[in-house]
């Protein structure tokens, strides 16, 4: 393992430590979505996924 991988691992570990409190705050305080809200998000993600599959065919 070279020092760039070690540096990247340390950087990612530091990111995890810094983002963790924000994650905990968001999970505790964010409003809860309805089934309709999540279904809406899922449909958008399906559209994004299909678009990416189209891009893969283009390359």
């Amino acid at each position: 393992m070279d020092w760039i991988q070690i540096g990247t691992a340390i950087f990612l570990g530091a990111m995890l430590i810094f983002i963790f409190p924000s994650m905990r705050h968001a999970v505790k305080n964010a409003p809860k979505g309805s089934n309709k809200d999540w279904l809406n998000y899922l449909m958008i993600m399906v559209a994004v996924g299909l678009f990416i599959m189209f891009l893969i065919q283009m390359v």
């Binding site: 393992m1 691992a9 995890l16 994650m23 968001a26 409003p31 979505g33 998000y41």
Partner: peptide, 26 residues
């Protein structure tokens, strides 16, 4: 539309992908 309900899910997802990337280095 109000997408604020996604805050917790997105932050958890971010933690998971950073953790998975860290794991995949090894």
């Amino acid at each position: 539309k109000d997408f604020s309900f996604m805050a917790g899910f997105l932050m958890v997802g971010l933690i998971v992908v950073i953790g998975a990337s860290l794991l995949n280095i090894f």
